[in-house]
Design a protein around this nucleic acid. Structure first.
Lengths: 173, 173
DNA sequence: CTTCACACTGAACAATCTGCCCAGCGATCC
DNA sequence: GGATCGCTGGGCAGATTGTTCAGTGTGAAG
């Protein structure tokens, strides 16, 4: 079920999935309301099989949850931007990250390679409101400089299914 | 239920949510397996109320689905990177976007303001594998130049709950 | 070749939940 | 005074869930 491979000196778990797993994931993604029983009918396998597969996917960390997908836009946050930060070198990344985490409009924070230190995804209600959010970020202790780009359109929204299909394809069940 | 406000000339729907909505969303996010009935018990309201609220949130677009949350890392894709692209001006964004969408490792594509034209989130199995993925992107017709930063760490993973709580706080139920 | 481990099937069970209906009640709006 | 709306609390038949069990086929190991 698991394979262990060294990646930059650290051992990371990697789960292998087959075609049935991929079809199950795709089905759940397409119609999340279907139950285990209905899924087993759609996939043409026994209910216990679907249950076991799903348990395995969850246990293996491939499926991390079934939380509701939320749309910032529907809540009035129609502007998405990516903000890169430069951090004062003496202070570590962590205190800055926790201060950023306190800003609700900051949806995501990464530390990154390159000339900048951090990349944040932020949302705002308008371009003017984005200025307010950026001001909140600039005021964070340890943040030296910020640079923002606004996402004008999102031709490909976050998706995992093609990758799941690709992984299953390479390891046929 | 809805308010309509002009944003850059386009009218966008914005749904208002109250404290109960926010608590329902938080509960579903924390324990997605709880059914409507159990949720109503936890929230201390009638089952019909929970059902109505959830229907409203879905109808209003705040909750867009309940798809499984998938972890690229568990599938062996331990490297995340952000790639910015410059596009040949004559060709529009759309054909480039659809070619990028054909690459499974490209999880997300935005068109952006600033010196570059597009921002992609990509994953790869290793740093060496990232080179392969970037090569795939560079080979896309219309892509002139790319620039990549690797996400070293993710101190704040994508999250919406604080924003939901903030929205509900501003409009107490 | 034999044996074991494993995964899948098909079935059964009690317990629970769902979708749907209804009547009543309090607050708000005309 | 109505009328509308949201919430409550109840009931109903039907479906689903969690769980267990025995039987079967396949692949790997001895």
């Amino acid at each position: 079920m698991f394979s262990v491979k060294p990646v930059t000196g650290v051992f990371l778990y990697t789960m292998t999935i087959d075609d049935l797993d991929a079809r199950l994931i795709a089905l759940l993604a397409a119609e999340p309301r279907v139950g285990i029983l209905e899924a087993s009918r759609r996939l043409g396998v026994a209910r216990g099989t679907v249950q076991a597969r799903l348990d395995r996917l969850v246990a293996g960390g491939v499926v991390t949850g079934f939380g509701p997908d939320l749309s910032p836009g529907a809540l009035g946050y129609h502007v998405t931007a990516f903000v890169t930060l430069q951090i004062r070198q003496v202070s570590g990344h962590d205190p800055v990250a926790s201060l950023l985490a306190a800003i609700p409009e900051v949806l995501e924070v990464h530390t990154i390679t390159g000339g900048d230190d951090m990349l944040c995804r932020v949302v705002a209600r308008s371009n003017a409101d984005l200025q307010r959010v950026i001001d909140l970020i600039v005021e964070v202790e340890g943040v030296v400089r910020t640079s923002s780009v606004i996402a004008l359109d999102t031709p490909v929204a976050y998706r995992m299914l093609p990758l799941v299909a690709e992984v299953a394809r390479r390891r046929p069940g």
